[in-house]
Design a binder for these strands. Structure first.
Length: 310
DNA sequence: AAGACGAAAGTGGTTGA
DNA sequence: TCAACAACTTTCGTCTT
């Protein structure tokens, strides 16, 4: 089993193309399932949900469920969900004498007060992760990972005295990066209740304190999602990725923002394939200005000898 | 009129003394 | 801590289609 169809057998390419277009992501509903080069897996370019690894075709299986059941299904097999805050309260016994009892009761109330407030804020944090994730159409797997990361931060006492909104937003940003489906800082800010500045601060703080290593995002990671937002198909997506690969071989991407590179590559690829998108269209979707798109696309087209006719 | 172009000044983050 | 610096944005006038 697990035969990666069409990896090198050139003849099957058309078949593959069709399959890509037909399938819908069960998580976010967008039609943007991508088969990854290198890794043998199919995943959603929009939300990052991995549908199949090693290409075991389970088309009929996941299709049979509606999205609600799907999310439950997707979690089957995991030992425990990290998104449930309450693992059961411990029971208190043996109160001793009445006087001691009173003292202990007071202590206990203090303690439970603290427990309650941290508990409350934890519940709030999880609900925020859930809210923002759903606004960003992130798959369950990323929500789980984000919740897990939040727990970790809590264990290291990194939360107290900081805004939950800032921390949770940063955690989502981090988790998306880790899963190879990066969101722009701006996209996170749009669903968050705090400023971009605060998210960045929390982001740097968490990276340092949890010493996480996050390699800079590749422009390629943004391409599928941006293409899908612009209504551009798989051929253009592939072309854009090809352009980026060539550009990075020539080190044209060094020191440049990955989003700008992705935007320019898509702009070029769309024109080359006769599906023109204006610089403004691309700018609106990617969040970089038309000026930056122009600068990048000038560099790319000149250095890579690509003739772009408008 | 819309889109593309590019100059010039401004902004926020990084780096290195 | 501060200044220099590079990437990017904002703004705006001009050219092209």
């Amino acid at each position: 089993m697990a035969v990666p169809e069409g990896e090198k057998g050139g003849g099957k390419d058309k078949k593959r193309e069709k399959r890509e277009e037909v399938k819908e992501c069960p998580e976010c509903g967008s039609k943007c399932l991508v088969r990854d080069y290198g890794k043998a897996e199919i995943f959603c370019a929009d939300c990052g949900l991995v549908i199949a690894e090693n290409i075991v075709d389970l088309g009929p299986e996941w299709r049979a469920f509606d999205s609600e059941q799907m999310s439950k299904r997707a979690r089957a097999g995991a030992p425990l969900t990290y998104r449930i805050h309450d693992k059961g309260l411990s029971t208190l016994t043996n109160w001793g004498s009445p006087a001691q009892g009173q003292y202990k009761l007071k202590k206990w109330q203090q303690r439970t007060h603290i427990a309650n407030t941290t508990e409350r804020s934890f519940i709030f944090a999880l609900s925020e992760i859930e809210r923002m994730s759903s606004a960003l159409k992130l798959p369950v797997s990323i929500r789980e990972a984000a919740s897990m990361l939040y727990r970790k931060a809590m264990k290291k006492h990194l939360i107290r005295g900081r805004s939950i909104e800032g921390i949770t937003s940063a955690i989502l940003y981090i988790t998306c990066r880790q899963y190879g489906v990066p969101r722009t800082l701006e996209e996170v800010r749009e669903v968050s209740r705090v400023s971009q500045k605060e998210i960045s601060r929390a982001y740097r703080f968490l990276l340092r304190e949890l010493d996480l290593k996050i390699s800079p995002a590749s422009p390629i990671d943004f391409v599928p999602r941006f293409c899908s937002m612009l209504g551009l198909g798989g051929d253009i997506r592939a072309k854009a990725i090809e352009i980026i690969k060539k550009a990075s071989e020539k080190e044209l991407t060094n020191g440049r923002g990955p989003i700008g590179i992705a935007a320019a590559a898509i702009y070029i690829a769309a024109i080359l394939n006769g599906e023109h998108r204006t610089q403004k269209d691309v700018s609106d979707v990617t969040g970089v200005t038309e000026v930056t798109i122009r600068n990048r696309y000038k560099e790319l087209s000149e250095q890579l000898d690509i003739e772009v006719l408008l």
